[in-house]
Structure formats: structure tokens, C-alpha cells
Amino acid sequence: MTGTGLDVDGVTLTAGAHHLVRDVSLTAGPGEVIGLVGPNGSGKSSLLRAVYRVLRPDSGSVRVDGADAWSLSVRRVARTLAAVVQDPGTGFDLSAREVVAMGRAPHKRLLDADTAEDAGLVEWALAAVDASDLAHRPVDRLSGGERQRVLIARALAQQPGLLVLDEPTNHLDIRHQLEILGLLRRLPATVLVALHDLNLAAYHCDRLYVLHEGEVTASGPPEAVLTAELLAEVYGVAAEVAVHPGTGAPQVTFLPGEPAAAARGRA
């Protein structure tokens, strides 16, 4: 198996009278890497929270491998779906290795001991994010980038068929950004990832969904989605999009000044 399919169908999320996400549908086939882009406050994190089963949709459904995520137990979902969420820090002196070992929890019963296989998976996950030498350091005293890699390792140790990541490249230096995104592509898992950097998203994702004010404005392969018009409309910025001769992926260059007059008029 190369990954678990995800179907988000007509999901609406509200906070009080305010819509966080309105009627969003999204699919990810087994093994696909799907990027979620959009400005701050566009609903990316809320949508991801609905997918990883923390925020219950007001309407619509989230199906993981064909089954409704909200009709399965938390534990059952956690055996196929892992998430890298925005980190609130622990404050309790856990070592990086202990944090990564948490990822084995959904595969364990109450009194199960850790096996050699668990230990091996933890070592592998740490190595995969280039964090083996952090294993015995307390996570609270790691840098933001180091901690982020440890959290990704924790998700890997969960052996997910579907991996959901909220801005995983935050705090990472450029080398680790490229390494992590390259790693996501090689994993035998479906990946849904919210990203800020459009060029990274364009190069590493099979398809992109663009969220704007809680709705999907565009979706499809990066070269079809990332256009100057869309960037002007969604982000309110002027940009040029070219195809990079080496990678073949679209390459966004932001330009100073207001977006072209053709774009949505701003008050």
C-alpha cells in the first residue's frame, strides 16, 4: 500500500456566527502530495484540524480510506493518520527520543512494552529528519527548527498512511526545508500539507488547493493554479509566474507595487 485516500466533501466549519471554512471539498488519492496554500486566516489550519479529527465539521464529511473519520474512534484514526500541528512546547524535560516514541502510542495497548521494532522505528524516524544526534536532548531546549524536525519524526514513527502537516517548514533553514519536503515525496504515504512558500509548494506537490476566505478558489496541478491573476486576487500582490527551465515547475517572482488593474479592485 502506498498511502491512504482522503475525501473531504462539502465541509463547513464555523466559530460562533463566523465561517472558518465554507463548503470545501478536497480529495487526495493514495500516494499523492497535496498542497494547501492561501493567505493567513484563509482557513488552512481549520480545514486541517477537521481532517485530523480535532474540529468537528458543522456539515460535510471527512473520509479517510473511505470511512467517516468522525464515526471511527480517535485511536483507530491515529493508526492511519498522523499530523504535525503547530507546536505548543512541553515544558516537562522530555528528550527528543521520548517525544518521537510517543508516535508509537496508537499502535500500543494498555500494558504493551516497547519492542525492538518500536525502537528501530524511532531511530529511523529521527535519522529521516536528520535529528539522530538530537535524540537525548530535551526538546524544550532545542531551536525552533530542531523541534520542528523532531515533531515530523514523531509523525513518521506513527507509520501513517496519511500524513497531515500544518506549515512543517516553519522555522526550518532552507536546507532542511528542501530535505523535509523531499522526504514527504518519498514516503509511502498520502500527504496533505499547508505551505506558505508557493515555490516550494509548486515544486513538491502533485496538486494544489488554494484557500481564500474559507473557500477553495482554485485547485489542480501547480502550473494550472499558480497564475499572476490568481495571486493578485487571493494575495493582493503583483507577481510574475514563469516555468523554471531546470525543474519544469512554475516559479513565482513577487514584484513591488500594486497588482495589475485587471485584478480585483481594492477599496
Partner: peptide, 14 residues
């Protein structure tokens, strides 16, 4: 242990 990771993270770990 899972609780130390935060409530959301603990939920995603079952």
C-alpha cells in the same frame, strides 16, 4: 506522556 505534547497532538496520536 501524550498529554505533554498538547491536546491536539495527543488526539492525533489516538
Amino acid at each position: 506522556n501524550l498529554l505533554l505534547a498538547g491536546e491536539e497532538a495527543a488526539t492525533t496520536m489516538g
